[in-house]
Design a binder for these strands. Sequence first.
DNA 1: TTGTAGGCGTTATCAT
DNA 2: ATGATAACGCCTACAA
Lengths: 347, 347
Amino acid sequence: MPEHPTGHRPTLEAVAARAGVSRATVSRVVNGGAGVRQLVADKVREAVAELGYVPNPAARTLVTRRTGAVAVIIAEPEVRIFSDPFFSQQVRGISKELNAHDTQLVLLLVEGPEDYERIARYLAGGHVDGALAFSLHADDPLPAIATRIGLPTVYGGRPAWTPAPGGPAGVTYVDADNRGGARLAVRHLADRGRTRIAHIAGPGDMTSATDRLDGYRDALPPACPPMVAEGDYTVEGGARAMADLLERHPELDAVFAASDQMAVGALRVLRERARRVPQDVALVGFDDMRSVAECADPPLTTVHQDIEGMGRMMARLLLGALDRDRGGILAPTSLITPTRLVRRDSA
Amino acid sequence: MPEHPTGHRPTLEAVAARAGVSRATVSRVVNGGAGVRQLVADKVREAVAELGYVPNPAARTLVTRRTGAVAVIIAEPEVRIFSDPFFSQQVRGISKELNAHDTQLVLLLVEGPEDYERIARYLAGGHVDGALAFSLHADDPLPAIATRIGLPTVYGGRPAWTPAPGGPAGVTYVDADNRGGARLAVRHLADRGRTRIAHIAGPGDMTSATDRLDGYRDALPPACPPMVAEGDYTVEGGARAMADLLERHPELDAVFAASDQMAVGALRVLRERARRVPQDVALVGFDDMRSVAECADPPLTTVHQDIEGMGRMMARLLLGALDRDRGGILAPTSLITPTRLVRRDSA
DNA sequence: TTGTAGGCGTTATCAT
DNA sequence: ATGATAACGCCTACAA
C-alpha cells in the first residue's frame, strides 16, 4: 500500500498518465464509473490502487459546491452537558446516519453568547452543507443566522419560539412526544391509586419541560390539585424541588419528575425524610437513561424515549433535503417520536 | 448586513472590483493586511462589509494545503461513552482550545472495527491537519494508520503499546498521573488506619486501569495482602467486583475503586450487605466526576484529575506542532498532569 | 465511450 | 505598495 507521509500526493493527472487515459475518464471512474468501458475502468482502478490515489476534497468542493459535512451545534450550559448522557446518545445516532452517507460531522460547541459570531462566520463560510442544532431557548440567535445564510437546518427538540406540536412549525424539528409521555406517567400513577400527584418540572424556558408539564396537567385526575415545583434537570435541582414540594404539600403520595436525574435527587430527599418509595410516595421519571434509572435505588419507573433514534431521524431529514435539491429548501416538518412507560420499582 | 441565501456569494474578484484594486490586494487585507496602505486597506474592508464577503475555505485549502480542522477520534464501546461524562469534558477542553485558534473539530466516532477503513480513507484524504485520538487498546489500528499517512496525532491517555510513563514514548500523549493518584488514594486509606485495603480495578487492557493498579500495589502497606477484583469502569461492574471481593475477603476494611462509577456500584453492594461506609468499610474512588461523586450517598472521597485541562493540553500540543512546521513532525512527548485527593465522606 | 478545455476562488511568485 | 499571472486538483459541458 503506497504511502505519502511527506511530499505530494498523486493527483488525477498522475493516475491518468499511469493508466494511459485522460483525467476525465479517471474522474468518471472515481465517481462511480458510469459510462466507462469495463476494461478501461479496471485499468484506472488499478492505477489508483498502485499510486494510492485519494481525491482531494478541497478541489472537489471548490467545483461541486458541496462539502460533504454537516455541523452539529450544541449550546448548553456546562451543568447539563457534563452530567447528561442525552447528547452523547443523540450524537451517536447522528454519527451513524452520517457515516452511512459518507458525510462528516463537524462539532460546534457553544460556550457563551460571544461564540455566536464565530459560528455565524463559520456557517456563512460554506464549510458545511447543513446543520443540526439542539435545545434552543427562546432567544437563541441561531435560527436567525441559519435562515439569513440559507443553511438547511434541522432542530433537535421543539424550538422555543415554535407553536405547540401540531401547529405550523416554520422550521423542521424532531422531538419526542413529551406531552404524551407525561400523560403516560401521570396516568400510571393514578392507575396505581395515587390521588396526590405532584410534578417536578424542568426549566420553564425549555419546551421539553413545558410540554411535559402540559402533559401532567392533561392527565391529572380532576380531584387532584396541581402541585408543581421547578427544577433544572439536574440531580441537585430535583432534590431542591422535592424538598420544596414536601414542605408545601406534605400530603403528596406520588411524584412525576420531568427527568431521571431530577428523580434521583428526589429519591435522595425522600429517603432523608424517611418516606418510602414506592410505598409512601410513588415516583416516575422521564428519559429512561439506563445508567441512571436502572442504578437508582429503587430502580426508576420512567418514560422511555428513543434518543439515538431521534438523532438518526434528524440526520436523515437533513440528508434527504440535501440531496433532493441543492438549494436546500427544507419543508417545515415536525417529526414526533413516540414514548412508552418502562415499569421498574419506584412506581 | 448583506445576505446570499441563494445564488452566488461574492468572491475576491467582486470585492476587488468594488474597491478598485486587484485581487492580490484584497487577499492581503483579508489575511491580516500587512504591507497595504492604511487608506487602501480601509477601502477594501468597506467593500468586504458592503458585499458581505466571506472567503471560500475550499479554495483557500486548495492552495495553502491546510484545512484548519482537526479530527477527534473516539473509539469506545457504547457502554462507556453513554454513561461517562469523561469524554464530554475532554471534548469541551479540546473545543475551547481549538476555537481560540479558529480551528474546527471534526468528530469521528468509531462504532466498530469495520469503521477503520472509512476513517483511514478520511484521514488520508487530507480533510484535516491533524488528529486527537482517545483510549486506544493494544490492538487499535489507528496509530499505524496515522503513522502511515504521516498525520500529526496526539493521543489522550497512554496508548497500550507504550512503555510506562517515563520511558520513551514514540508517540505524543497526554495523560493523568494515574499511578501517583492511586498512591494518594491508598496512602490516605492507610493513614486513616485501614489495614485491609482492597482494589476494584478497571479493564486490564486499559493503561489507566493498569497504572492505577500499579499505584495501588506501590502504596499498599507491607502487612496488607493485595486483594483485587476487576471491573469494567461501570456501575454494574463495580457492584459485581465488590460482591466478589466481599466473598473472597470478608475481612476487608477499605476499598480503592479505580473509578467513581465503580465506587457507586460498590456502595450499593456494601449497603445491601449492611456494611456501613465509611465506618466499616472506607471507600475511595477515582476521577472526581462531580455529578457522580458528590451525589453518591455518602459523597465520595476520590482522586481528582483535570479532565478538561487534559483536553486543552492535547489540542495545544497538536496546534503547536501544526504551525511550527507544516510537515508535522510531532516530537514524541508525554505530558502527565497531576492528580490530587478530594476528601468527602466515604473515607 | 473518451478526450479537450475551461473554470471553481484563492494564494503566492514575480514584476513593476 | 500594488498588480499580473500562474498554479492548486478537480468536475463537467462539449466536442470528437
